[in-house]
Design a protein around this nucleic acid. Structure first.
Lengths: 340, 340
DNA sequence: CCCGCATAGACATATTATGTCCCACTTACC
DNA sequence: GGTAAGTGGGACATAATATGTCTATGCGGG
């Protein structure tokens, strides 16, 4: 069952932000009283004018008192603040975590959905929905979207809705067919995403490990060449992050590589790149398509991964990720990430 | 302890309105789907453009689906609506009651605070606060405010705050000293209100029952004459509403009048006028100052009265009250009023 | 085949939020 | 006692947003 807050998040998404802002103001006034607008504004990272509007509002509500020496809480304000403190812990926990997480990982934004996808399967759907919303809000008009595989991306595909159709999207697999079961392959997912949004997609079937000569001849194939061009000119990349060992085992990785990966203490995987805890690339699946270095050229990069067990993998990858990355994750992973 | 909703009402007063609006839209779409904007707009009493903005928002939230045949709820929308229904009953009960009450009484606005001042003494304070806020929001600049007596008005006086000082207010008693204990006399209350707001006040000491000759000579007194002029030019009247019998007994009413009042089945009293259930004036305390007929000339008329026992009195008075009246009351009285 | 109802686009205008500057006042410290 | 730093608040241009109004166009039932 939904709680009041969950409903409000859906029905008045800004409410939470505003509440947090006002809570922050009351909180600081409580700490620093009596205090002036200017110093408050810098403490809170708000412009003076914005703070002033808020302060005027709070004054109208009789929550603060304003005198020539500065602002202080009224008795009503103190009472309300006390009650708010408890509530904010629950409510804005997530918003606060989003801030903290994006700062800590050095990325553009973190979006956290509540729950833990390790424990509750439906949280993956929520991840999907959050990702879909994020895509929707960031893309206008014609776009090429490069997508990787994995069960999380499959969940995203499921949650896309056709009201995006207008926008003229084209889904392309980010990299050549990275062996996995068909259901979670990039090609399959692209197709499903296109289905769900009434848009188009391309496929890219390429054997995993290509020899030099093979590569040269494949890349000359006009069809493939075209897809690769599209991949490189994508305006958005949507990718998952996996646990290194799990991914390596799930794929048809050679015994030799498996040992290499394990010995290098790889923890995370994304795009066929394996990362150790320091964020260094310790192994790479040789294939055509999007390369790690291409990411920085792409306008929107959205990484989606949830579950507390994936925290390490996320942390590892994020050391290497472009700073424009947006991470969509769940509470379980976020808590681990912030802790560690 | 405050509930989340109470806090939000204070911290984001518009939230409730918006939530109600959006709930209403979802609700109606649920009932009428598939339905177009135009018919929805008239059903909800919104302009088409406003509705359209809302609808676009709801679409972005994936709560409704829009097709060429009209709008309908998405499965998410249905789920959310179900959860909302229960919540709205509690939350917006008061807002709904305010609408209903103002309609039923035929007045400009009704403001309801939660609780019942018969049972909980602190609700009177809430009445006071709500009244103070209302005054604040309606008056700009220089104003003359005519005030009557009574314990409710005393509570209002207590809740006024000096941040209104700027506005240059002058408090005058609405009518000549209507006998009651000093604490709740209009003169005393004016003085207290002026105190609390750092503004000025006038007094008007006049014997209750004046003979013709007495009246003529009193009215010539320059001091009194001036106050009366001020009363007549007031931009706001603030008055209480009392139970007829209680008021009659509390005042030094002659035995003869008391019988008259009782026989005429008076139920309500305001300004020294006694009303029966039909809203007819059955008795009037003869004194100088504001007369019932003067009310319609005055820009802002605020009536304040709470407690379920006062419902009858309020109902009686409201039959006679100008349609611009604003009633500030409590849940206890409001429920009775709506029921009866 | 047309009429009525549907969505969606476009644009002017009203309203609100925000950025920017300035002023007068209080306070505390030298 | 005077000065500097900090205070609230006024004023105003501009940006952003909401709203009113009109129009284009598509769809389905009679």
């Amino acid at each position: 069952m939904y709680s009041l807050i969950d409903i409000q998040k859906r029905l008045l998404p800004d409410m939470l932000t505003v509440m947090q802002k006002r809570y922050g103001i009351l909180h600081y006034i409580g700490l620093m009283e009596p205090v002036g607008r200017r110093s408050l504004a810098v403490s809170l990272g708000l412009t003076e004018r914005v703070l002033r509007s808020e302060v005027e509002f709070l004054k109208d509500q009789n929550l603060i008192r304003i005198s020539s020496t500065g602002m202080s809480l009224s008795s009503d304000g103190k009472e309300l603040l006390g009650a708010l403190e408890g509530i904010m812990r629950d409510i804005s926990g997530i918003a606060v975590m989003e801030q903290e997480l994006s700062r800590k990982l050095g990325i553009r934004k973190a979006i956290i959905v509540s729950g833990n996808s390790d424990e509750s399967p439906w949280v993956k759907q929520e991840l999907g929905r959050a990702t879909a919303m994020c895509m929707k809000s960031r893309l206008k008009g014609k776009n090429i979207i490069a997508v990787t595989g994995g069960s999380t991306m499959a969940a995203v595909a499921e949650m896309l809705t056709p009201d995006l159709a207008e926008r003229d999207w084209l889904f392309v697999p980010a990299r050549g067919g990275i062996g996995e079961d068909v259901k979670n392959q990039a090609n399959t997912i692209c197709s499903k995403m296109a289905d769900h949004t009434d848009s188009r997609h391309r496929v890219l079937y390429v054997p995993d490990q290509v020899s030099r000569e093979m590569y040269e001849s494949i890349i000359k194939e006009p069809n493939i060449k075209e897809v690769i061009t599209q991949i490189k000119s994508a305006s958005m990349v949507l990718h998952g992050i996996g646990d290194a060992i799990t991914m390596a085992e799930r794929r048809k990785t050679s015994e030799e590589d498996l040992v290499k990966i394990k010995q290098a203490k790889a923890v995370g995987e994304s795009f066929g790149y394996y990362f150790n805890e320091g964020g260094e690339v310790v192994h790479k699946v040789q294939t055509i398509g999007l390369q790690l270095d291409d990411l920085s050229q792409i306008e929107h990069v959205i990484a989606v991964a949830g579950g507390s067990t994936k925290a390490k993998a996320i942390a590892a990858y994020m050391k290497r990720a472009p700073s424009t990355t947006i991470l969509v994750t769940d509470e379980g992973a976020a808590k681990q990430l912030i802790k560690g």
